[in-house]
Design a protein around this nucleic acid. Structure first.
Lengths: 337, 337
DNA sequence: CCGGATAATACAAACGTTTGCACAAACATC
DNA sequence: GATGTTTGTGCAAACGTTTGTATTATCCGG
């Protein structure tokens, strides 16, 4: 492995000059810099980033912690963040928590021990507050939270307009004539889910509909199925689900009770997972904009600004919630107006 | 940040003793080790892995390079590898190449510069051979290839039984009465796709069917759609697709030509992406076993053994290829026997 | 009680880079 | 031409750990 000392020796200068030349310091003569660069290229030098990191006390690695990478939402956030960070010379260390708090803590420790330049994260559902995050990262590792955020933690945050999105989704169901709209609410220790719940509630009030049933802790297919059955038994004719997998479960629940979708039962999910547009019936979904959220999170890290960025959601109206003129509907196109 | 020197000072020993104590060297007294461990815990010490890595010349990071993390297949491979590596004390650095050779080379350089302990990878389609991999990793960073492998490179390999899988898929189509079976073959510079092509070819021969059309470079929805149209125009009544997204495109192509699936046109895809079982019609797919492949790849890295591990594929028969008694079929259950 | 083996620890040199400070030379200012 | 300022380099000390070798303490048999 060729080091800066080798280059220095070959050129009759000192390692410090080589180091400065390669890092673009204004304190070396243009001529020297060129000589160094040429010799470095010639000898096939590549900087030992581990040594560099040790000396500088931080690395060019940015850690991203997500519950699960195979969720469309998260893999797209990662993609968005990567597109920005890579251009800025960082590389990305991805950790999955599988929604487990202990895995999240381990990931945080790992990242800190590797002296990452920053952490972008969406916390596990198992985490009740962000204390462990603060403890692990201390004050010198910048933190950017996205989607699931603890708003009392310092640092930048990137979120969706969950309240408005859920409001629009619920209102859409009401406009389609559904009158008893429940919700699969997700986990209440996540502010994102809590905001969606409030949006749903407000929409019901504004539409003059009675308070609907709330089914918490529903986020996967199985729990969506069970809650869907309960909702049907409780007399619901529609559900706004804060997740797509649980919406899928609810669709299956309705089917298993012999209900037609959307004629007898309407459903809107959240996240716009790939399958929602491919299924029959296709599932209406409140789309997040994960790629953009990833980009914004990365930008926030790079700029160091601390504010909260709101990335708007978009309601994708599909078959599962369109019972007005539903035979004319084309999936993915709004059916109103 | 508390260092081993701090612990040493507090205990009146030297840093070297502390280091040895913490790394479990037999050259420290049991009593000293306990004292060190206790003091370390008390002071909240955590090893600076960057310094450790520099000194040791390698890190506890294992790099995983995949074309795209949001593909179900790859995210599950990562999950499988992670489950093994994490237990062994490694952490995982994930890089995406987006199928671009230059991104792959950059990822390899990044990993080498970070002195990773090993690399697990599935090469980008853009790569014609593995020379750049060898160049980047040299001989001292162990390499494990999975799924898409260059068989002339050294190191362990984990692959599916692509030939046998494609053979079974094609045979299944023939047994369903399809007589003109083409293939969406993927990219021929990948040995995995080449093997599937051969399996398809052999099945046609063994079933006494004529040689079918081959559409190369089909791997995404759009190219699958285009190739699907061509296949239909060429008189095909079925396709074995080496990917699911291209199979999806082909389904859409058949629909756009007014063909009924599976009555008029049969399709089997590959990879068992989530959407295949949720669509209508559900798409039959040749399932890989990504989680197991990831586990095997990680095991191969840990053990250092160089052989080739074959993980079997499993044909999931669904609606898109079941025209015999197709109204009785239940998705996901085989319809034969 | 001494010589030699063994056990436990100390010493010091790495690993490759970065960076504050010192230093010399060149240049500008009065 | 003395003084101050800029410009380019060299020197050396870090960063925190690991590890080969030297050193001391401990123990044994004779």
């Amino acid at each position: 492995m060729v080091t800066i000392s080798d280059i220095a020796a070959a050129l009759g200068v000192t390692p410090s000059t080589v180091s400065r030349a390669l890092s673009g310091s204004p304190r070396v003569k243009e001529e020297t810099r060129l000589a160094v660069e040429q010799m470095a290229a010639e000898m096939g030098y590549e900087r030992n980033v581990v040594a560099s990191n040790l000396r500088k006390g931080k690395s060019d690695i940015v850690g991203i912690i997500v519950p699960r990478i195979h969720r469309n939402f998260f893999s797209n956030v990662i993609g968005g963040a990567e597109s920005i960070l890579e251009a800025a010379g960082y590389c990305v260390l991805i950790c999955q928590t599988h929604e487990r708090l202990e895995a999240e803590m381990k990931a945080l420790r790992t990242l800190r021990n590797n002296q990452v330049a920053g952490v972008l994260m969406s916390h596990a559902i198992g985490a009740l507050d962000g204390k462990h995050i603060l403890d692990a990262l201390g004050s010198h590792i910048p933190l950017v939270q996205f989607d699931r955020v603890f708003s009392d933690l310092p640092g930048a945050k990137v979120v969706s307009n969950n309240f408005e999105g859920a409001y629009a989704a619920t209102r859409h169901l009401a406009e389609q004539g559904y009158r008893h709209i429940g919700t699969l609410a997700g986990y209440m220790n996540s502010e994102a889910y809590a905001a969606r719940l409030e949006g749903w509630r407000q929409a019901l009030r504004d539409c003059g509909l009675p308070e609907g049933e709330v089914y918490e802790d529903t986020i996967v297919r199985e729990t969506g199925f069970e809650a869907g059955l309960k909702a049907i038994d409780a007399g619901c004719d529609a559900l706004y689900s804060a997740g797509d997998f649980s919406a899928l479960g609810a669709v299956e629940a309705a089917r298993s009770r012999g209900l037609r979708i959307p004629e007898d039962f309407g459903i809107v999910g959240t996240a716009n997972e790939t399958f929602t547009s491919l299924m029959t019936p296709s599932i209406s979904s409140l789309a997040l904009n994960p790629f953009e959220m990833g980009r914004q999170a990365a930008q926030a890290f790079l700029s160091g600004e601390e504010g909260t960025v709101v990335v708007p959601m978009e309601l994708k109206v599909r078959e599962s919630s369109c019972r007005i003129h539903s035979e004319n509907q084309i999936p993915d196109k709004p059916c109103l107006k």
